[in-house]
Nucleic acid binder design. Structure first.
Length: 499
RNA sequence: GGACGGGUAGCUCAGGUGGUAGAGCAUCGGACUUUUAAUCCGGUGGCCGCGGGUUCGAGUCCCGCCCCGUUCACCA
C-alpha cells in the first residue's frame, strides 16, 4: 500500500489542470495548432521606436502587431492588468483593459498562468513610465503550462537542476541563453570562415570498427545484425585523411567525439571537435591559418580581440606568440629536456624540480607532464607551442632534420588547450612502425595506446598528398568566449550521473 | 578514490547549545483601469536527500548510503 502524500507541487499542477478543463468547458482549446504572428516582438518594438522618431505627436503613432510568446509575469490591477510576453529574441509588456476587450475576455485572463504561451494583437504604445507596451484588443491561449516556473527575481540557481532540466535554466536565466547564443554564433562563424576559403564540410562515421585518431579509451557498443563490436569514435582523423587520399583537398568536420574517461570542469564524455585537413600544406602554414581562424572568430563573436577570462584580460590581437615546446620548458621549468632524450635521465631531471613522475611514464609523457605542470599555467595570452617529441604523436610527420621531433603545434589561451595540429604523416612505412610501437605500449598495459588500422595503412599506400591537419575543441573555445569556468556551462545537456 | 562544502515549500533562502518547521516570490481568496521585483489585507502549501541509531523527544547529534559542486589524485 502506498501512502498518499500531498505535495504542494501537485496542488499547483492540479490547480492548473482545473483551469485547463475550465477553458475546455467554454469550448476553447488550450493547446493550439498554429498561430500567425505579424512580427517578432523585437521587430514590433523597433517599428514602434522608428514611428516615434518620425511622429511629431505621439497620438499620430499607429503601430499594430500580432505577437506570441511565453507569459512570464502578470500584474493584476482590478479592471486592468499587465503581463510580460517573451519570445525567442525579446520581451514586451502587454496591457489588458476590461473596456478594450470583448465580453468575458478580461475575466478569462483568470485562467492564464505564468508560463503559458499566449498570442495577442493590438497596438503598440508607451506607458507613462516609458515602457513599450502592446495594448491588447484580443488574445488567445496557445499552450497551457502545467508546471510552475522558477522564481522571477532570483531565477534558477540550483546547479543540478540547471543541468538536468536545462529548459528551466533557459527560461529562467536569460544570460544562459545568451551564452549558448554565443556558442552558436561561434560555430557559425567558423563554418563561414572555412567555407569561404574553399573547405568542404563532410561527415564521417561515428561508429568505428577500430577506434583511432587519438589516444583515449573508447566507448564500446555492439551491432546486433552484424554481430560485431563497434566503438563510438574518439576522433574522425583517420577517416578525414582517407578523403584526402580520395582526392578531396580541403575538408572539415564539426561533430561529436566520445571518450570514456573521467569528467571534470574541462572534460565531458562527449564533446565537439572541429577537425580540418588541407592538402599541400604543412604545420607552419597551418599555424598562420589557425591564428587567422581564431582571431576572425573571436572578432566576429565578441566584436573585439580583447577578452576577459576568469578575471584575467587576454589580448588576442595578432600576431600570437610562438614558442618551441622545449624552449618553453627551458624558460618556465628551468630544465633542458631536449638535451636528455633518454627516459630515466629525463625522469630524474623532472623529479629534481618537483614534478612527480610515475615509473611507467615514457619519455614523451614525461615531457607532456612537465609541460602541463610547469608551462601551461603561464599560458594566459594566446601561445603556440610547437615541435613535440615523436613519442606523443603517432600520426604526425617527423620534423625535417630532427627525427626525434614531430611537426606539431598546440594553442593555449587562458591556460586552456584549444587545439592540436600537425603535418600529417603520409609515409605508410613510417606509419606502420608507429602503430607497431603503439601496439607494444598496449601490450605493456597502456589502454589508451592506438590500434593498428590496416585499412588506413592501405589508404596511405595508395598515396595521401602532403597535408596538415587541425583539431579545435569547440567546447573549450566556447568556454573562453563566454568566460565560463566549466565545460558544463557551454554544453546544453552535460553528462550527469543517473538518478 | 580522498578532502572540503551543499541537499529544508514549486523557486530563492533562514533555521545558537536537541523541545510542535520560518521568510520572500509563486499559488488561492479579497481591494485596485498606466503597473513593472506593482502595492495592501487574508489563506493554502513541508517523507527537512534516503536508511539506520542515540534520546522522553532529531531538520539539528552519531553511523551508512545517494546526488551536486570545488579541489586533489588517477587517467590523458
Amino acid at each position: 500500500m502506498h501512502q498518499e502524500h500531498h505535495s504542494s507541487e501537485q496542488d499547483l499542477i492540479q490547480n492548473r489542470l482545473q483551469k485547463l478543463s475550465h477553458i475546455r468547458s467554454r469550448g476553447d482549446e488550450p493547446f493550439k495548432h498554429k498561430f500567425e504572428r505579424s512580427s517578432l516582438i523585437g521587430e514590433a518594438r523597433a517599428a514602434f521606436e522608428a514611428a516615434e522618431k518620425e511622429a511629431a505627436d505621439p497620438q499620430e503613432i499607429h503601430v499594430e502587431a500580432v505577437l506570441a510568446g511565453r507569459m512570464t509575469s502578470f500584474r493584476s490591477h482590478g479592471k486592468s492588468a499587465f503581463a510580460d510576453l517573451r519570445d525567442e529574441g525579446a520581451k514586451i509588456q502587454l496591457y489588458f483593459k476590461k473596456d478594450a476587450l470583448s465580453d468575458g475576455a478580461f475575466e478569462a485572463l483568470h485562467d492564464l498562468d505564468l508560463g503559458d504561451f499566449v498570442g495577442a494583437s493590438g497596438n503598440v504604445f508607451r506607458t507613462r513610465t516609458g515602457e513599450i507596451t502592446l495594448h491588447v484588443r484580443s488574445y488567445e491561449l496557445l499552450t497551457k503550462s502545467l508546471r510552475p516556473l522558477p522564481e522571477k527575481y532570483h531565477g534558477l540557481s540550483d546547479v543540478e537542476t540547471r543541468y538536468r532540466q536545462r529548459y528551466l535554466d533557459l527560461v529562467a536565466n536569460p544570460e544562459v541563453k545568451e551564452k549558448f547564443g554565443r556558442r552558436i554564433a561561434m560555430i557559425s562563424a567558423m563554418r563561414e570562415h572555412l567555407t569561404a576559403r574553399g573547405f568542404a564540410e563532410v561527415e564521417t562515421p561515428m561508429l568505428h570498427p577500430i577506434p583511432g585518431g587519438a589516444t583515449a579509451r573508447p566507448f564500446v557498443t555492439h551491432h546486433h545484425s552484424l554481430d560485431q563490436d563497434m566503438y563510438l569514435r574518439i576522433a574522425p582523423e583517420l577517416y578525414l585523411k582517407r578523403l584526402l587520399v580520395g582526392g578531396f583537398e580541403k575538408v572539415f568536420e564539426i561533430n561529436r567525439n566520445f571518450r570514456n574517461e573521467g569528467l571534470d570542469s574541462t572534460h565531458n564524455p562527449e564533446f565537439t571537435m572541429l577537425e580540418l585537413y588541407e592538402a599541400y600544406q604543412d604545420y607552419l602554414g597551418l599555424m598562420d591559418d589557425t591564428e587567422e581562424l581564431f582571431v576572425s572568430v573571436i572578432q566576429q563573436v565578441l566584436g573585439a580581440t580583447t577578452l576577459t577570462y576568469q578575471g584575467e584580460t587576454i589580448e588576442a590581437k595578432r600576431p600570437w606568440k610562438r614558442v618551441k615546446l622545449f624552449d618553453a620548458i627551458r624558460e618556465h621549468a628551468g630544465i633542458d629536456l631536449e638535451a636528455v632524450p633518454e627516459r630515466d635521465t629525463a625522469a630524474r631531471l623532472a623529479t629534481s624540480i618537483g614534478v612527480e613522475i610515475d615509473e611507467t611514464l615514457g619519455y614523451g609523457k614525461i615531457v607532456d607532464t612537465v609541460m602541463s605542470d610547469r608551462v601551461v599555467p603561464y599560458l594566459v595570452h594566446p601561445t603556440f607551442l610547437y615541435d613535440y617529441p615523436v613519442e606523443l604523436s603517432p600520426l604526425a610527420k617527423k620534423k625535417r632534420g630532427s627525427p626525434a621531433l614531430v611537426e606539431r603545434f598546440q594553442v593555449f589561451v587562458g591556460r586552456l588547450e584549444l587545439c592540436n595540429a600537425f603535418s600529417e604523416l603520409n609515409d605508410p612505412v613510417d606509419q606502420r612502425e608507429r602503430f607497431q610501437e603503439q601496439a607494444r605500449q598496449r601490450e605493456q598495459g597502456d589502454e589508451e595506446a592506438q590500434y593498428l588500422d590496416e585499412d588506413y595503412l592501405t589508404a596511405l599506400e595508395v598515396g595521401m598528398p602532403p597535408a596538415a591537419g587541425l583539431g579545435i575543441g569547440i567546447d573549450r573555445l566556447a568556454m573562453l568566449l563566454t568566460d565560463s569556468a566549466s565545460i558544463r556551462e557551454v554544453i546544453f545537456f552535460p553528462q550527469l550521473r543517473n538518478l
